[in-house]
Amino acid sequence: MQAVTFPTNHADLTRLVGGGRQWALIAIGLGLAAALPYAVNSYVLGYATLVLITAVGAVGFNILVGWTGLVSLGYAGFLAVGAYTAGFLMSKWGWSVLAALPAAGIVSGLVSLLVGIPSLRLKGLYLAITTLAFSVITNHLILLAKPITGGSAGLRVPRPVVFGIDMTSDRALYLICLFVLALAVIFALNIRRSYVGRALFAIRDYEVAARVLGVNVVAYKLLSFALSSAVIGIAGGLFGMHLRYLNVESFELILSIEAVSIVIVGGLGSVAGAILGSGFMVLLPEMTRLAFSAAGGSLGGVFSSNAQEVKGVIFGLVIILFLRFAPSGLVGAFRRLGARIRRWPLAY
């Protein structure tokens, strides 16, 4: 039986991941994820790709919401900025995806400063409304900037060939998304274990105390906005390549609500939680549809004729249930389950 291990030194506290067992789990997870496209059909692969893209965005969103404690509803706006930047650069200027994706991150990060600066004096609901307004404005600007975005007609996004890999193949796009997610996770974990991460946690936990300790609150809040939005922007670039077509209708406000749901359901402040939450929330409607279909009869009919309404109800219920019974999200639930298994048959 294994007891709980507490970190006792600086090296333990700043490790990228927990230890040998976690590295093994990550290796197995990555191996399975890399093998997935060779085992499933294109439809399942489409969902898996969407999970990975959502996870990239959620890992970025978690930096702002989970680590810095800034409530944002601007996810859809930053995603749109990244998607249109990468889409424009690839389709109009013929940029390689290797250049377009970082550019999407940089532009999205810079744009976030526009929102970040006025929001330095705002907190909680006020900040949420400000960022929500940003998403609304972004959608209007997309419609107005017709030469760049195609306006309401939208923008076609090519899937280029990178290092001889034809990305028109869904499998190649999936693997690229997996690679980008791995990079995003390493990036986020490195931020978390660095001075920057500790500063963000300090701001989240007690801003005044952080200031007293010498943390430049203004600079770190802005940095949090920029880092978070940059990662979300890269997710937007991938989203555009996945859809192969961008239109303002793809970036509706519900995306921002879903992003908040993902980090709550996964486990606020946890990178693993952001990934688990993405998988859970993206697949939830499809899983529910399959469950309803399997049930057949009138239950199956309910979902086939009221899919979006049922989805909305389930989304709401899941968030309420998680907040009430598992506020630490899926990650917390898994940790508790793991601890129970390790300590079994003892209760404590």
Binding site: N41, S42, Y43, G46, L243, Y245, E249, S250, E252, S304
Partner: peptide
């Protein structure tokens, strides 16, 4: 399939129709 008039859902619906 129901796509709710959202293009990203249409893409997924199209995948289902064509692949499944």
């Amino acid at each position: 399939e129901d796509d709710g008039y959202v293009p990203s859902r249409t893409v997924q619906a199209m995948r289902k129709l064509v692949e499944i």
